[in-house]
């Protein structure tokens, strides 16, 4: 029988940060630093908003998903193979990543030194009603990444680790996985208007790279 989760975890976010917890928008922005250092693919929902919060609306070096749950890491892998001289960063949530966790194995089985994954883990399916995700029930994605042969893996739980994470995303010489553990608080919707037509994002992204 599935392990029962206490009632307080179900159906709503935590009202406020507990001592020592990281707030996702602030933590992601701090770890990303200058977003122009990367080509970025985002997972849907929270991760997309975390990135756009850091970049501003409609950046040309970001390809955000508003669906295709489970696709972010493999899109990033394909992009990294196509653009070996750029650093490709996938920013996604733990629920999105878990949907195709086998992609970690596909990445770990190859040499993709320019691919980075930043997994923002709030232990909830925030978009669908804050139901507990598997990481609240004992699943450790950093261990899964290590087991998948991703060479450079870190779990970030406190601000003092941000600097190392920021540098690793830029300077690692192997595929890199950073698990960012954040509070299950609701960061709210972004106020900025963002383009809704995915083909516009695609064309802008490719134009900025100068590919035909």
């Amino acid at each position: 029988m599935a392990k029962k989760i206490t009632k307080k975890h179900v159906s709503k976010p935590n009202a406020k940060l507990k001592a020592g917890e990281l707030e996702r928008r602030k933590a992601t922005k701090a770890i990303l630093g200058d977003t122009d250092d990367f080509l970025i693919v985002t997972g849907l929902a929270g991760a997309k908003d975390d990135v756009l919060n850091a970049t501003g609306a409609n950046p040309s070096n970001v390809f955000p998903l508003s669906g295709a749950m489970g696709a972010a890491c493999s899109i990033g892998l394909g992009l990294a193979l196509a653009q070996p001289d750029k650093t490709v960063l996938v920013v996604t949530g733990e629920g999105e990543l878990l949907m195709n966790v086998g992609t970690l194995a596909a990445i770990g089985a190859m040499e993709v030194p320019n691919l980075r994954i930043l997994c923002i883990d709030n232990q909830r399916y925030g978009e669908t009603g804050w139901q507990p995700s598997h990481t609240l029930r004992g699943v450790d994605l950093a261990k899964m990444a290590e087991g998948a042969n991703i060479k450079s893996v870190r779990t970030v739980t406190k601000q003092s680790q941000f600097k190392e994470a920021r540098e690793l995303l830029r300077n690692a010489n192997s595929s890199t996985f950073i698990l960012l553990k954040v509070a299950a608080t609701d960061p709210g919707k972004l106020a900025m208007p963002a383009e809704r037509d995915a083909s516009v994002w695609k064309t802008r992204f490719r134009d900025a790279l100068g590919v035909v």
């Binding site: 295709a68 696709a71 493999s74 899109i75 196509a82 195709n100 086998g102 194995a105 190859m110 590919v211």
Partner: peptide, 20 residues
């Protein structure tokens, strides 16, 4: 590239084309 599942392949091709 050997995919762990076919859907991974569709997304990988999509990402590759984004990168030209």
């Amino acid at each position: 590239i050997t995919c762990t599942s076919e859907e991974e392949g569709i997304h990988m091709l999509s990402g590759a084309w984004l990168g030209g």
